[in-house]
Design a binder for these strands. Structure first.
Lengths: 204, 204
DNA sequence: CTTGAAGTTGACCAAAAGGTAAACTATTCA
DNA sequence: TGAATAGTTTACCTTTTGGTCAACTTCAAG
């Protein structure tokens, strides 16, 4: 009962958008409120701080959207390595769209926020860690499957997943920094290379 | 003639330190001044904005310190692949020290700042881009040398350098996010793997 | 030993930010 | 219909921040 409202959703959406386009540190409650078309009083009705809202925004964005995308791309019905290359390719395609729409490659909000929020802002950092850890697991699982069916070279799948994830997020960040999509172009190949690599004989 | 002072240096140092430990977005002029032990009036005597100072701080940090480290590690007197593995190893060792001293892995300020400063803050972003591009060139050059003497597999060295750099910065960022040094442990091996990789026959 | 350039200080301002609370409005179910 | 509940608004307060300025201090060269 009582009055209904989508102000909470508008705040979450606005916060995520601002974090993505600008950064977490630069966010202000005023800016979020203005963007969401919500008065500050209402903000404090739903959330008690910027961190709380930001953590909720990351949470929502992952559990209500991002996760589904991962689930589809990493579907067990797809060949393991194909999951990874398709994922990488979709990142490339996705960021082309983002650049077209916003004039700027924006990358992955979770990773940006994660590396931005140091010791302080515990809630946000914890949420970013949680989501990133989940994303990592998709990689890990695909790698294990690929190793099982012989399409990837054997070895510590968890460690390989971290490397692959580093390659992915690092490329995305570079693309954002230089606003240059070419950093993402050969991500699928680079990923394959990493997993199918047979150590060459020569070593310096 | 006139009075002498190291206030400018103290401001640069304080700014870099705060950017590194916290983030760029969260920086305030007041905080920098307090940390540097400099009054705001003096701040504006030397710099005209936070961006200007931040860009100058990154500049100083690179041209007066970072560059020398790179020059030593990427010395032509060292075997090309050894340059890269030694670099990766020194990052690992370095961040162990950082974690010991600050209780937190802090990573690379340039990369963090770069991905944090979107379209606004042009000066800072441009400076970060400049430095990161220079760092990339060390990788590129080492890769080319390794290819020339047959210790690395042939192929587009510029593209490979970007991948390697992504792997490096991505791992560093992950290490920071999770405050876990293990993300950096096998960076040397992963780098070698990337450059010596012979594509396996099997493909899914 | 003075003079002017280089640097410092503290007081001040306006704007922006975080935060609160009481009065108001809409909704719904009893 | 009318409480009770859920959400909104406005006005207000305090603190922090960015930014300026004129007066002050130091110093070194002529």
């Amino acid at each position: 009962m009582g009055r209904t409202s989508d102000a909470k959703e508008r705040l979450l959406e606005a916060a995520l958008d601002l974090i993505w386009k600008r950064s977490y540190g630069v966010l202000t409650i005023d800016a979020i409120c203005e963007k969401a078309g919500v008065k500050k009083g209402s903000f404090y009705y739903f959330f008690d701080s910027k961190s709380t809202l930001a953590a909720a925004a990351l949470h929502e964005s992952w559990y209500a959207c991002g996760k589904d995308v991962y689930d589809k791309l990493f579907s067990a019905s797809v060949q393991p390595l194909e999951r990874i290359t398709a994922f990488m390719h979709s990142v490339y395609e996705g960021q082309i769209e983002v650049q077209k729409e916003h004039g700027q490659i924006l990358g992955c909000p979770c990773f940006s926020v994660g590396s931005e929020t140091s010791s302080e802002d515990q809630v946000v950092r914890e949420k970013a860690r949680e989501i990133l850890s989940q994303q990592l697991r998709y990689f890990e699982s695909a790698i294990r499957d690929a190793q099982a069916d012989g399409t990837a070279v054997p070895g510590d799948a968890a460690a390989k997943a971290k490397c692959l994830f580093a390659l992915f997020e690092g490329s995305l960040a570079q693309a954002r920094i230089h606003n240059d999509i070419s950093y993402l172009k050969n991500l699928p190949d680079a990923a394959l290379n990493m997993l199918q690599a047979k150590q060459s004989t020569a070593v310096g």
